[in-house]
Design a protein around this nucleic acid. Structure first.
Ligand SMILES: [Mn+2]
Ligand SMILES: [Mn+2]
Ligand SMILES: [Mn+2]
Ligand SMILES: [Mn+2]
Lengths: 228, 228
DNA sequence: TAAAAAAGTTAGTTATGACTAACAAATTAA
DNA sequence: TTAATTTGTTAGTCATAACTAACTTTTTTA
């Protein structure tokens, strides 16, 4: 018999590394994730990630060969998903009950996701009547770690004439989120791509009788579902 | 002009030490608190507290002379009160909204009290409509750190024939709190002291047509207000 | 008031998780 | 296919916060 659940006893740092690796891996499961990439993502030195990866390998959360790419074990994935569940439930709570705006929740959720109490998070889930999505449109895993992958592509991947619906946004940048709200975009907005300009990849879009030009960088952080 | 608010930037440990010292000091403001007493309370070695006290003195949260007793500066008190506010508000939230029992809340609140977000705690306060007391009967400081001291003495300090009302309980021990509920006591229970037995200081009490004998240790953790 | 006990301090060690600098392996470009 | 670049690893340092063991000061007790 394998360990029931040795899923506790992880430090905040260990949890953060596992979550980061998980997020890098699902961004594009075909592309491998290396040590330096993880270091970049977490804004620490490659030496730090190297060291932590050693520890996580010893604990059987990560697998990799020397000089090879990184991967998570099932156990490692499970911990990452649980963190993401907590993060998104807290963001939802802050937005829907405590008057936080969608650009304010991420930072606080980064702290709250490390609170250790199964009951706390499951009761919070029940209190909110089991929400499916967080304020940025991302799916919330259930208590068993299950969640549907929402079909999303970036706005930047579309072409002239495409029509799409905004399904989610990257929640990492406060400035970006404020910007999205300010120009009038929100979850479910229907967006028509008028023109992708070759010169600088900027995109002219139309939504709700508004026409705006957004940069490639902006469009990289907007996730959509094609309609036409 | 003094520092606006350098009240952030404290580690979880520093916060815990300040809160512990504050709680030891108000238990009996006349009695001085020493290094070893603080170590006992926090369940760390005297060397650890000595070291941390040095740091807190350097940061002007604590004052003491070499080989002398410890005291908090106004700044130090302010941080401690803020922690207590957060602790009690979270306990209240867990009990009143998330189906926690009063013996389950303390451990989780010990984690939640260290979350850094002014907005979070003030919105939580508003969401619950500014509760005055926590699940154990303790007063909750307001956003300015103000709170009334509720007049409390321990049940163990009473004598034969005294009648009192249960106003609060120490929230540190899960077993104690379960025990209190099990025998049928709750906040506001009216208790009559039938007899304090000399031999072992056990106390025979009556409440709600129940007669029970409780130990001195039990009675030390029950706070009451005299009625007769 | 001198010895014993208690309280407080210091020194030295450990673990975690950062860092930089130097080095080795793998990949890419010339 | 060699050289340059990128990627990954190791060694050594630092800060935090714990520990034990030894020592000093203060307080208590005989
Ligand atoms: Mn987030
Ligand atoms: Mn989110
Ligand atoms: Mn408590
Ligand atoms: Mn309490």
């Amino acid at each position: 018999m394998t360990n029931k659940l040795n899923l506790n006893n992880l430090t905040k740092s260990e949890e953060d590394y596992l979550k980061a690796l998980f997020q890098l891996l699902i961004e594009d499961s075909s592309v491998k994730v290396g040590n330096n990439q993880l270091a970049d993502y977490l804004k620490v030195s490659p030496a730090s990630t190297n060291n932590m990866i050693k520890k996580l390998k010893a604990k059987n959360y990560v697998v990799s060969e020397k000089y090879g790419k990184l991967d998570l074990t099932e156990e490692g994935k499970s911990i990452a998903v649980r963190l993401i569940r907590k993060h998104r439930l807290w963001e939802t709570f802050l937005c829907n009950y405590l008057n936080f705006t969608w650009d304010e929740v991420h930072e606080v959720a980064e702290q709250l996701e490390h609170i250790k109490s199964k009951k706390l998070i499951n009761e919070l889930d029940r209190f909110m009547d089991f929400p499916e999505k967080d304020p940025h449109g991302e799916m919330i895993p259930n208590a068993d770690g299950e969640y549907s992958i929402l079909p999303k592509i970036t706005l930047s991947s579309l072409s002239d004439g495409d029509v799409c619906q905004l399904v989610a946004v990257d929640d990492g940048s406060v400035n970006f989120l404020k910007y999205v709200s300010e120009i009038g975009l929100a979850l479910s907005s229907e967006i028509k791509v008028l023109e992708v300009r070759e010169f600088d990849k900027s995109i002219r879009i139309q939504f709700d009788n508004t026409i705006e030009t957004v940069t490639r960088k902006f469009a990289d952080n907007v996730f959509v579902k094609k309609v036409v």
